[in-house]
Design a protein around this nucleic acid. Structure first.
Length: 415
RNA sequence: GGAGGGAUCGCAUAGUGGUCUAGUGCGGGCGCCUGCUAAGCGCUUACAUCGGGAAACCGGUGUCGAGGGUUCGAAUCCCUCUCCCUCCGCCA
């Protein structure tokens, strides 16, 4: 969330930023509530001061006087509590400010392709989409997925499941051994506060699954759990940056994309993802973002699959982000670029919500860290790209060289 | 699910209604002393928020797991909740 002081002092900039995102955050209401909160607070504090001195003097009608002050304090406290709860709810719905360098845009069409390394593989036959290859080979079973859980679910079998597992292993190993991330195993059911910290709540409740009985929420991405790993902590300057990687399932209701991408495994209610996450000092966050994107690109490169990197425009960067790069892999069967990663610098937005700070100097005041997140990468779409890019004319698929060490069971592509 | 115990300013603790304006030890910082190091000595060291100030800083208020309540006055008494620990039950 944005600092209320920042909104107060940079109102026009904030309005512009909100407009650039096509967002409708209630800035006027925030300013008004803030004004009322502060004036009431001044009165309340004055009353508390009176109560304190009255109870200390212990003379005359101090009991009666104290009783009167108490009633006034209670009244004011109720008013302020109400104002603060409304103010806080409004503040939680204001998106982060994009960095000045982020391209202005009205929709995802205004995102900018900044590099396209490598060329699409040339094949001398018409490439099939993964759902056909997958069904022909018996490695993706859509019918079984629907039978068990309904639409937007699928079952991976034999080589399909093995390939996904190998990809996860391959990605984790690379980030841990070569890119310096620490592996973590995380809860995928979390409390509401965790989702407020990561900024999925209150605004995006529609996209989340929830267990009403225990009030557990299912994470839509490991970013949620990773953000909260250091909630309410003051981190030591020396231990930053902290870099984590995790593989988790992700759960999304996808209400907003009803009817979209229903074919294949591109968009399911449940999918696997390897996620990178960093806690860094503010000065280095943009630099760390570049590194993170490079870490994600390295996976694409090693898999020898064509990809491109886009910088997202103001209208398309996520709610918490100040700046975002997407990585897309080419899928010749679907004939489209698939988003396999989104890497964002969230600045201090999540850190303020989750109260994650560090001390710049040994004796200085704590300041908020910057947080970054990036997929490294999202499994179903990488699986699509592998299947479609490595398909052979006889209907079978080849295994990328980089994955061969990770396929440890004998598993023919006719599995 | 049941029974009991606990949560205090980085860590460990003291504090059961009124100079608690939260004490002490450890750890951290600054300095002194001393060939060096160690030890010793002195000072200092929580966070948030509001107001004033260009700033250094000054003043107010709040925070003893969280939220309510009782009281002239709450770390302390009452209620609800969260988390941790011990034991019992169930269980991969």
């Amino acid at each position: 969330m944005l600092d209320i002081k920042f909104i107060r002092e940079n109102t026009e900039a904030v309005r512009k930023a909100v407009a650039a995102r096509n967002d409708s955050a209630p800035i006027d209401e925030i300013l008004e509530l803030d004004e009322r909160r502060r004036s009431n607070l001044a009165r309340l504090e004055e009353l508390r001061r009176e109560r304190k001195s009255a109870s200390r003097t212990n003379d005359g009608d101090f009991r009666e006087k104290g009783r009167q002050i108490r009633e006034q304090i209670k009244e004011l406290e109720d008013i302020i509590r109400e104002i603060e709860s409304r103010l806080n709810d409004c503040l939680l719905r204001v998106p982060n400010n994009p960095q000045p360098s982020v391209p202005e845009g009205k929709s995802e069409d205004d995102n900018i392709v900044i590099r396209t390394p490598g060329a699409p593989r040339q094949v001398d036959f018409a490439p099939l989409p993964h759902w056909e290859i997958g069904e022909n080979l018996g490695i993706i079973d859509f019918e079984a997925g629907a039978r068990i859980s309904g639409s937007r679910f699928y079952v991976l079998k034999g080589l399909g499941a093995t390939l996904q597992r190998a990809l996860i292993d391959f990605m984790l190993d690379m980030h841990i051994r070569e890119h310096g991330y620490k592996e973590t195993y995380l809860p995928v059911m979390v409390r509401q506060e965790a989702l407020i910290g990561s900024s999925n709540l209150p605004k995006f409740a529609d996209n989340l699954y929830r267990d009403i009985e225990e009030d557990f929420w299912f994470i839509p991405t490991a970013e949620v759990a990773l953000t909260n790993l250091h909630r309410d902590e003051i981190l030591a300057h020396a231990e930053l940056p902290l870099c984590y990687v995790a593989h988790t399932p992700c759960f999304r209701r996808e209400k907003m994309s009803a009817g979209k991408d229903v074919r294949g495994i591109k968009r399911g209610h449940q999918f696997e993802k390897v996620e990178m996450y960093k806690f860094v000092i503010p000065e280095t966050s943009n630099e760390e973002l570049e590194k993170m994107v490079a870490n994600a690109e390295e996976i694409c490169a090693r898999l020898e699959i064509p990809y491109r990197v886009k910088e997202l425009c103001t209208a398309d960067i996520s709610f918490a982000s100040t700046r975002t790069y997407d990585i897309e892999m080419w899928a010749p069967g679907c004939n489209e670029w698939l988003e396999v990663s989104s890497c964002s610098n969230c600045g201090d937005f999540q850190a303020r919500r989750a109260n994650i700070r560090y001390r710049p100097e040994l004796d200085s005041k704590p300041e908020y860290v910057h947080t970054l997140n990036g997929s490294g990468l999202a499994l179903p779409r990488v699986l699509i790209s592998v299947i479609e890019n490595y398909q052979r004319s006889d209907g079978t698929i080849d295994i990328p060289e980089a994955l061969k060490p990770y396929i440890r069971v004998s598993n023919t592509s006719r599995a």
